[in-house]
């Protein structure tokens, strides 16, 4: 399109569970360094799309290219190499409940690198601090954390290997507004400092307005439009119109234009 490197390229994707078709002929591109927000009604297959991109879901048809490679056709070792360049934050955190937060963050470090324990602990502590958690959270078990802390701990694990692409499945769902906007700022900071590409599923309109470079709208089994918010808002599809021009959409838009949120 404009010469930027595509890190995710989805072409003609079709996902089907039994007789129920979730995606049909779905196309989507994500470019390096951008934050793409994916929106869509409940049950429109946002999480399924994420799972298809990271290779947890084998599509019925179509191709998914991640960092220039088709995961379904790769050998296991090459596939693991690509997967280690992706960080995923699952909707409910998916922290390993038998490990402390610090050990959770160290799992990918242990598996992919041979580092001395002290150094791994140091790196883990750094990631935990980067994710905005206090240092003492490292010694806690996931069951002892609050909802917001679980998200941050899961983020710390997702960025453990300094991934190229960060996948976030509803990162701000269930957070209070202060926590949610802090999380938004955190994602922005990480993007700037680590040069991340972020693929973000969200229902949070404030998140869309404050941090997303482009928004992809998932509806009618495909990506209706993937463009800047200004253009998506003007799209004349009735669902999109209701989504962005409804009371909540307008409130979020006003908030984003009026409040010049200090990002740093």
């Amino acid at each position: 399109m404009n010469g930027r490197e595509k890190v995710i390229e989805v072409r003609g994707l079709r996902n089907q569970f039994g007789a129920q078709v979730v995606h049909e002929n779905l196309d989507l591109d994500v470019y390096r360094g951008e934050i793409v927000g994916v929106v869509g009604g409940s049950g429109s297959g946002k999480s399924v799309l994420l799972r298809s991109i990271i290779g947890l879901n084998r599509p019925a048809a179509g191709s998914v290219t991640l960092l220039g490679e088709d995961l379904q056709r790769l050998s296991d070792t090459r596939r693991a190499a690509i997967e280690s360049r992706c960080g995923v934050l699952f909707q409910n955190g998916a922290l390993f409940s038998s490990l402390t937060v610090a050990d959770n963050v160290m799992v990918p470090l242990r598996e992919h690198f041979h580092l001395p324990l002290a150094l791994m602990q140091q790196v883990a502590a750094l990631k935990i601090a980067l994710a905005g958690l206090p240092a003492e959270a490292g010694a806690k078990f996931p069951a002892e954390l609050s909802g917001g802390m679980v998200k941050r701990a899961a983020l710390a694990r997702a960025i453990a290997l300094d991934p190229d692409i960060l996948f976030l499945d509803e990162p701000t769902a269930g957070l209070d507004p202060i926590g949610a906007s802090a999380f938004d700022r955190l994602i922005l900071t990480l993007r700037e400092s680590l040069g991340l590409t972020v693929f973000l599923i969200t229902h949070d309109l404030d998140t869309l307005y404050t941090i997303c470079d482009r928004v992809a709208v998932l509806s009618q089994k495909r990506v209706l439009i993937a463009d800047t918010l200004a253009r998506v808002e003007k799209c004349d599809d009735p669902w999109i119109h209701e989504y962005f021009q409804g009371p909540r959409g307008r409130a979020a838009a006003t908030a984003a234009t009026h409040a010049a949120i200090p990002m740093r």
Partner: peptide, 13 residues
């Protein structure tokens, strides 16, 4: 960013 994160106060584990 890393320096800011390291500067956050917190008890040693």
């Amino acid at each position: 960013a890393v320096a800011r994160a390291r500067a956050r106060p917190g008890a040693a584990p």
